[in-house]
Structure formats: C-alpha cells, structure tokens
Design a protein around this nucleic acid. Structure first.
Length: 477
RNA sequence: GGCGACGUACCCAAGUGGCUAAGGGGGAGGUCUGCAAAACCUUUAUUCAGCGGUUCGAAUCCGCUCGUCGCCUCCA
C-alpha cells in the first residue's frame, strides 16, 4: 500500500492468508497468466519453507461478459465455456509445476455471499440500486485511489467517453448487473441478474480468509480499477483494513510492449511448451525480479535453457564423482567450497527475504556451481571430498525444491529436451551409434569415430567421452 | 492531459549510501582431450542514460533533461 518494500509482519503469528486473482475462464492462458501463477506459487512455497502456515486462495471467474460473449458465439452455455477453459488452465498449470491453491472458488458458487455483501453495502449507504443494477458509490468511500495512487478528481477529469448518464458519478462501478434476456441470471433483491467482477474477490476473500488478511496478489494491470474497487468494497463493508500487503507482478513484454490479448502479441502457454521445457519457462520467469517487466524472446528462453543445462551438467559430474571417488584422501582447494557452502543458505535466504529476489538467488546457485566444478577439477578423492560434494548436491536440491526447479535427474532433463526439440532418434539407436563409435575409437579409427559424432551433433546430440565410456546429452540453447 | 515505473557491459540481469559493481549468455586467449564436449583459468563496465546538487563518500538520496514502458477501458 505504501508503494515501498516493508517489513513483513503477519496478522497472526506464523500464519499467512493469501488471495491471488486467478483467471477469467473464457480463453486459453498466455505467458502472462503463467507469470502471475508462477510468481505467487514461489512466494507460497518460500513462505512455507520458512515455516509459515499459508492458506492460499485463488479464484476462477466463471461468469462475466467475455464468457457470455464466447458462449453466444460458440452456441454453448457459459458453464461449458468456463469448464473448458478451467480445464485448460489446470493442464497448463500442472505442466508448469504450479501447485494448486488450497481453495479455488468459482464465482457462481458464491452468488449468495455476494448478494449478502452487496445488501450490506446498500444498507450502509455505500451503494445504490438503479434499474436492476447496483452501483458502488465511489464518492462515499474516502480512501478511494489509495492503492493506485490516483486522485478521484483526476480520474473524473480524464474519464473517457461512454459515460453511463444514470450513474451518480462516472467512477461508480457495478456490483450487480441486471441480466438481459437469455443471459445467465440469479435471483436477487434487485431482480434477476449477475454479479459484477470486483465483488467476487471481495466476497470470496472475506469468506475464506476473513475481513482482513495478509497478502493479496495479482498482475500489475489489476491495480486499477480491480484492486482499488476491492478495497473500496471490502473496507466499506467491514470498516476494517482489507489487505495488509498488496503484491503485483510485472508484465511480460514483446518488443517492449505488454503482452496482452487486446494487442494480440501474446504466446499461449501451450505454444511455448511445445518448444521449451516447462522448467525453462519457470527459470526464465525467475531470472528477473517479479515486479520488473520481462521481455519474452527466443534468445531469452534459450539462455534460460543453457543455464539449466549448466546445472544438470554439473549434477552429472557430481554424481559421477560420488560413485567413483577413490578412497585415498586427497582434498585440495576445499576451503573455498567449504566457505561458500557454509554461507550459501544465508545468502539464499537474504535474497528471498528481500522481496523474493529470485534473480539474486539464482546468481548464488551458479556461484556454488562454479565452485564445486572448480573443486572437482582438482581431482579430489576420499571421504572428506565426497562429503563436501554430497553436501553441495543436497543444498542445491533443497534450494531448487523451494523454487521448484532443478528437481529432475539429468537423465530426465535430457529425455525431456530430446522430446521438446523433437529429435528424431530413439535412445536405443543412440546407444548403438555410441557403441559403433566406441569400436572405431578402440581401433583408433578417428575419422570414422568423428563422423558418427558429427552425424549426431547435426541432430543436436552431443557426445562426451569420459574415462569409463561415452555419455550423450542434448544440445541446449 | 493526469498518475506511476524503469534506463547497470555486446545481450539478459542482481546490486538502492562505503571492501575488487553478483550471476548467466556471447567474444578473445589458455589448461585438459586422439580431436572434441564439458569444466576450469585469464580477459571483456576506472563505471552504472545525461547534467547538476546533498554527503567525508552515490549506480544507490534529491532536482532537472533525454529516452522507454505502464495505468487512467477488459486485461496476469
């Protein structure tokens, strides 16, 4: 609310009540929806990791103008439209590794609650019925504009055309809308109609999280008017502060412009996941701070893929070492690694405690990656070296777990890359080729061996000769 | 027009008053290797859009200028 970072103090000790605006189920999701979902998924995971008991509510709007329009166009019911795109949404979220919220309410299951809220607002004089609609009277709520830092007078001055003359003020917004013939409708004290968009979040958030709760999140485009209106409704209703901390994720941009439905410059999650591993998308989104705009491009996604590949390549080295390390104690240059290991967790926590700075956290992960590689380059052996490397692997896995990345085995990673890059080669064919090349190498027929390697490289498969055999990877980036 | 955010290397990106300006990608050189790949090492910002100011000290605070974007209408 202050527009600045603040110390995080929960309303109840160690408990966090968090509401995040979900989707309106009228079309498939694009990357912007993914960002919001992933950002708040990480926030929830991190708070839980830190020992908070988090109740996460994420709504699904299943009745609104766009759903009605789509239903009319496709000649199906609004319920069918909402169901279809809710299913698509869950499919996308599952692929992206976004966990479910604890409560995922639909608007249409809470019509009664909304009617009750509106009734109270009317009784308290904050809202007025008008020809079957009900409007919130913005002028009656003194704090209006405090979240978006807008002055109601400026808003009035800048008001665009299409002003509804019946309203007491152009800023007044609908709590309840009378239904037209053939539209979905519910009985209410003001006649048959349906709820306005803003009221559902206020009613449902209050129902599940209380009249005041800790965190409310969503995309930055919801600040005004949606969240401003939620505050007006919630605080007019209860007389209490509605939300303690507002958190808004920044936009995804394409050529510096906001990715959006209306501009048509969007990429659906489905399209992106056809070309990139879900983990790559997650990493990409975590590589910038959640409030910053982030430019979508293939270059960026490829860089994310390379970064993740660097991680898994190191995991392979670590695993190889742990399996094959000799017993003879040889530990050189371990002090740097030991230092880094002992300070690593604090660095990670500090980064995340500072407004969930995932980009900084990822930086620390790669510092550790470089150090463990350096350590392994010294060809260490023995139990002490093993313990150190094991500790590194565990620490990396723990932190990766919080961010929900880096949680595959390297084998899974490369199989997954193989699939997403549509490499036309079975694993057994690949093994055969490697064997064939192995024979050539043993016979020191380098040209033949190189030919096989080049042939595979052309398909995007990279061979790595190690002392006990040849491993394959898929070229990232 | 009103309000707001941002501008850090070739690209992406952390850093918001004080040790050598994280990290990733890319470039150049090197070590290792049959050759590669991977990894590592060295190097690539005496400088943080520009100009002023505050301060012992600023990329970091303040002012102005330039540029980019967002919100003010549905939007993650």
């Amino acid at each position: 609310m202050s527009g600045e970072k603040e110390y995080f103090v929960t309303l109840a000790p160690k408990k966090v009540n968090m509401y995040v605006c979900g989707i309106t189920a009228y079309d498939v999701c694009h990357l912007g929806h993914a960002r919001s979902a992933i950002v708040f998924d990480i926030i929830k995971r991190y708070l839980r990791y830190r020992g908070y008991e988090v109740t996460h509510v994420r709504n699904i709007t299943d009745i609104d103008d766009k759903i009605i329009a789509r239903a009319a166009r496709e000649n199906i019911s609004t319920g069918e439209v909402a169901k279809k795109y809710t299913d698509e949404y869950y499919r996308d979220m599952d692929l992206l590794g976004v966990s479910r919220a604890d409560i995922e309410p639909n608007a249409t299951d809470h019509i009664q609650e909304m009617i009750e809220t509106i009734k109270v607002l009317v009784e308290k004089g904050y809202a007025y019925p008008l020809d079957g609609d009900v409007y919130f009277e913005v002028g009656r709520f003194p704090g209006y504009g405090k979240l978006s830092k807008k002055n109601p007078d400026d808003l009035l001055a800048g008001a665009r055309v299409n002003i509804d003359e019946r309203k007491r003020s152009p800023l007044d917004f609908a709590l309840w809308k009378a239904s037209k013939e053939g539209e979905p409708a519910w009985e209410s004290p003001w006649g048959r109609g349906r709820p306005g968009w803003h009221i559902e979040c206020t009613s449902m958030a209050s129902k599940y999280l209380g009249e005041s709760f800790d965190i409310h999140g969503g995309g930055a485009d919801l600040i005004f008017p949606h969240h401003e209106n939620e505050i007006a409704q919630g605080e007019a209703y209860s007389g209490k502060p509605f939300v303690k901390y507002w958190m808004h994720n920044g936009f995804i941009t394409v050529d510096k412009e906001k990715m959006s439905k209306s501009l048509g410059n969007f990429f659906t999650i489905k399209e992106i996941l056809d070309k990139y591993e879900p983990e790559v998308v997650r990493y990409f989104l975590l590589s910038a701070h959640y409030r910053s705009p982030i430019e979508f491009s293939d270059v960026q996604l490829n860089e994310a893929e390379l970064s993740i590949d660097r991680y898994y390549t190191t995991v392979i080295r670590i695993n190889d070492f742990i399996e094959s390390a000799g017993a003879k104690e040889k530990v050189e240059g371990a002090s740097e690694l030991e230092d880094l290991l002992s300070g690593f967790k604090d660095k990670f926590l500090n980064a995340m405690n500072d407004d969930f700075n995932t980009a900084s956290a990822l930086g620390y992960i790669f510092e550790l990656i470089r150090e463990v590689n350096r350590f392994l380059d010294g060809r260490p052996s023995g139990q002490k070296a093993k313990d150190l490397v094991l500790r590194t692997r565990e620490l990396l896995a723990e932190i990766g777990g919080v961010l929900n990345i880096f949680n595959k085995t390297p084998e899974e990673w490369y199989r997954s890359l193989m699939k997403v890059k549509k490499i036309d080669l079975s694993e057994s064919d690949l093994e055969d080729k490697i064997l064939e090349r192995q024979k050539a190498r043993e016979a020191k027929e380098w040209a033949a061996a190189d030919r096989i390697r080049d042939e595979l490289a052309e398909k995007g498969v990279i061979l790595e000769d190690k002392k006990d055999g040849t491993a394959w990877k898929i070229r990232a980036g």
